[in-house]
Design a protein around this nucleic acid. Structure first.
Length: 380
DNA sequence: AATTCTATCAACCGCCAAGTC
DNA sequence: CGACTTGGCGGTTGATAGAAT
């Protein structure tokens, strides 16, 4: 079904995307956008061509992609649009929110086209027979003989996450303990290890599929929560926040009717080890992840990063004490040096809550999330 | 149980249009 | 105006899960 990993062309990886690659791409694009697909893989730390990254994002990873069964209305729309537009899949996809041109194209070739051909082969009398199934109904019946006409609504998508996806293996899932969990209402995905939290009674179906399969769910931010196994965490995260791990908060993943502000997070414990966090992060300004050229030219070493931790505010441009080792332009180095890339997030004191999610602020008042960059202070 | 066949769909390829220099 | 880059599109491939034999 999927191409094997490991294909190699000019040192670039091909074939099936690995979960780690997906996470890198998601992390980069959600944070910085797709400003240049060709350059993106280099800065996202991916050994893929830009085209492959774009395809993966557009057809698979971007938010609001609807997967799984097609509703009757959707199939009707596809058939109708195909009659008028032909194989202009992107134009057809534009009329079907959440569906990609590639998926529609596949669905057409594997289901609809054959069904239409089959029904056109049927003698006319049979077409007008008393059971009177429409052409579409016949297609649907063939595709799903057990329940052909019971189609989910747009919000009742039956999740089906494909093979190279982000789902943890069963063995990984089974290693999850309640001791490392957070409040059930929130669905979190551990950042540095593919470990999920305790299963929630409210979280029906596949925990992993929901955030990616529902219309109004998306990865909103990272946050920290208790996590005991630090083996797979980066040293910086470990140092800053042990015994915590980084998690992604998925808005509304398990209940689309619950507004974000009502999502709950585990009560903060007394003697929170985070309080010992001592990073000196002082300044802030809004969110453009990559500064304009004028911003770049006005940026000096004085608003560079800390040499010791290589941290950059995630949602803000943050200044920190300048390091003698941090030469050149703070922004250009992590983004434009081939050896530097975003590696993980860390938590550190931060006073401007404007750009943080309510859930995050509630749980970590006074803290913000920062991206860690490798090699920022090593570049000469 | 083993083998063969079929359906599926993620990913790749080549081409084209638009934008930039 | 032409060369080049980039993003986007549609056709096609090919591994594999599941069904059929």
């Amino acid at each position: 079904m999927v191409r094997p990993p490991g294909g190699d062309k000019n040192g670039l990886k091909r074939g099936t995307w690995m979960p780690e690659e997906d996470r890198k791409l998601i992390a980069y694009v959600t944070r910085y956008g797709c400003w240049n697909w060709r350059q993106l893989p280099k800065f996202a730390g991916l050994s893929r061509c830009g085209k492959s990254c774009r395809l993966r994002w557009m057809n698979y990873l971007r938010p609001n992609i609807k997967r799984g069964n097609y509703s009757r209305e959707e199939e009707e729309t596809i058939i109708k649009l195909h009659e008028s537009l032909g194989n202009r899949w992107s134009a057809i996809a534009a009329q079907l929110p959440g569906r990609t041109d590639n998926e529609i194209k596949n669905h057409w070739h594997t289901n609809l086209k054959k069904g239409l051909k089959k029904s056109s082969d049927v003698p006319r009398q049979e077409n007008n027979s008393s059971n009177n199934l429409s052409q579409l109904e016949k297609i649907q019946k063939r595709n799903d003989p057990n329940n052909s006409l019971l189609y989910p609504t747009d919000t009742e998508i039956i999740g089906r996450f494909p093979s190279s996806d982000l789902q943890p293996s069963s063995s990984r899932s089974s290693s999850i303990t309640t001791n490392t969990s957070v409040e059930p209402r929130i669905n979190m995905v551990e950042d540095d290890d593919f470990t999920s939290t305790e299963a929630s009674a409210e979280t029906s179906g596949n925990f992993w599929t929901q955030p990616f399969l529902t219309d109004n769910s998306y990865i909103a931010c990272d946050f920290l929560a208790p996590f005991m196994d630090t083996e797979d965490l980066s040293p910086v995260v470990d140092e800053f926040s042990f015994p915590y791990g980084l998690f992604e908060e998925i808005h509304g993943a398990n209940d689309l009717s619950v507004p974000l502000e009502k999502t709950q997070i585990r009560e903060r414990e007394p003697n929170d080890p985070l309080l010992s966090c001592t990073a000196q992060i002082m300044d802030s300004s809004p969110s453009s992840p990559q500064p304009s050229s004028s911003e770049l030219s006005s940026m000096t070493k004085d608003n560079a990063v800390a040499s010791s931790t290589n941290m950059v505010a995630d949602d803000v441009v943050t200044s920190l004490e300048a390091s003698a080792e941090t030469t050149g332009d703070f922004w250009t180095e992590p983004f434009f040096d081939g050896s530097s890339y975003i590696t993980s997030d860390v938590l550190a004191p931060f006073t401007n809550n404007e750009y943080l999610s309510p859930a995050f602020v509630e749980y970590f008042p006074g803290y913000g999330l920062y991206g860690e960059y490798e090699g920022v202070n090593m570049i000469n």
